[in-house]
Structures are given as C-alpha cells and as structure tokens.
C-alpha cells in the first residue's frame, strides 16, 4: 500500500539517502531500524512531503505522492508522528485533538474518534484542558500519537515514539502501538529500541549510512547474526 522506490534525498549539497526502497503492505506493522544518523527520520519526512526527493518515487495506494505538499499527502490517509513529538506548545490537549481531525473527512467522524482515542489514552482525558508544554514526556508522546489517530489514518508513521521515555512508559507505548495495529491500522515504526521493535514487527528494514542494507521478517532479523551484533549487543 505504501511503496518507496529508490529515493535519493539531500540537505542542500549533502546527500543523506541513497536509493532507499521499502514497502508496507496493508495491515502490516513494519519496523525501520538503524543507528543514529542512518537516515530513518529523513525517510519518513520524504514520505510525508516535508522533504522532496531528488529522484525516485513514493506511491500510496498506487498514487504518486512525490512532490505533493504534506497537507495533500496527509489528506490521502497517511499520518506522521514526527520525531520529538512536535506538539503545539501553547495549545491544550483538546485543541491538539481537534487539529488532528482538521480535515473534512476526519471532522465528520470527530466525536467517534475522540471517544476511541480517549479510551486508548485515558490520561489525556484527565489532561484535556491542559496546555501541551505542561505535560510529562510520556503524556506528550501519547498526545502526539492520539493527534495522529484523530485523522483516521490508513497508515501511521511513528518516528522513535520511545525516545527519552522511562522504561515503564516505553513498555506502555509499545503496548499501545500493538493495540492500534490490532485494531487494523497499518504502521511504519522507526525505532532505536531494536529488540522491542523487531518483536512486534511483521517485517523490518535495516538502514545504514543512508542505505537499506537488510530486509526480512521481524523474527528473521532478530536471529540475524549482524543485527544481533550491531544492535542487540550479542
């Protein structure tokens, strides 16, 4: 359903993605792993149009997304929870969730989705009228995911949702990702938490220095000697 075909992406003169290709099929949870600076965030930003590839194509449900503005891409059903959460610091939880359902299609189902999201993240109900910058790190991450779910996405891109969170909260966030996936949302998950990501993933891609170097099912990669050595410290 989401197909990235050998994209090349550069920041100014500095090329950071080289012929990156990957695919996500409907209903899958696909993990994208790799060391810091490998190009995972850049890949997600290219998918949602925040960066424009020099060459290559990105297809979603057979339609070419390459070169469209982010708001057009989001409208087609891709939601992106960016690295570092990127909340609106002065807005309340409620306002974030309303903004998450800004698009007409999502606005029509706003009440239902709000109930659904608040049942997944009960803490957001308690914080409903609080401003984002006053939330804890874990709560902010949950708000970022909840905001994305408010758009009723077909595919959810998650960029390091566990970054900077306490181990207990990390476990909770992974539990929630699995739950969302079980409810039928297709997910592309970027993680440095390789062990946990591969455990819940159907398939995974490994990136190194701007290139995809390995691909396989989650369990295959968990057992792969190079992955074990480089990312699992075994």
């Amino acid at each position: 359903m989401l197909l990235v075909e050998s994209i090349n992406v550069a920041y100014g003169d500095l090329q950071v993605l080289w012929d990156v290709s990957l695919s996500v099929r409907e209903g899958e949870l696909v993990a994208l792993i790799g060391a810091n600076g490998a190009g995972k965030t850049t890949t997600l930003r290219a998918i949602t149009g925040l960066l424009r590839p020099r060459s290559g194509r990105i297809l979603f449900d057979g339609k070419d997304l390459t070169g469209l503005s982010p708001h057009r891409i989001v409208e087609m059903g891709i939601a992106h929870v960016p690295e570092g959460r990127q909340l609106f610091p002065l807005m309340t939880v409620e306002e974030h969730l309303l903004l998450g359902s800004f698009l007409p299609r999502a606005r029509a189902r706003r009440t239902q989705n709000l109930e659904r999201v608040l049942s997944i993240f009960p803490v957001l109900r308690e914080r409903f009228h609080q401003v984002a910058e006053t939330l804890s790190g874990g709560e902010q991450q949950m708000l970022a995911i909840a905001r994305a779910l408010m758009s009723d996405p077909k595919v959810l891109l998650l960029d390091e949702p566990s970054l900077g969170l306490a181990p207990l909260i990390v476990k909770e966030v992974f539990g929630i990702i699995e739950q969302i996936h079980k409810e039928g949302v297709t997910i592309l998950l970027v993680e440095q938490n390789v062990q946990q990501a591969l455990t819940i993933a159907d398939r995974a891609f490994v990136m190194e220095n701007g290139r995809v170097v390995l691909e396989g099912s989650g369990s295959e990669l968990l057992a792969h000697p190079e992955v074990k050595k480089a990312y699992l410290g075994m």
């Binding site: 949602t48 149009g49 925040l50 503005s69 982010p70 708001h71 989001v74 409208e75 939601a79 992106h80 960016p82 990127q86 909340l87 609106f88 610091p89 002065l90 807005m91 903004l99 998450g100 800004f102 698009l103 999502a106 905001r147 758009s151």
Partner: peptide
C-alpha cells in the same frame, strides 16, 4: 506555533 506539524494535520 509549529509550521511542519500544522502541515502534518492537513493544514494548508
């Protein structure tokens, strides 16, 4: 407050 995040909510 955050232009990229606004685009990602579908805001032109």
């Amino acid at each position: 407050q955050n232009r990229d995040a606004a685009e990602l909510q579908g805001i032109n």
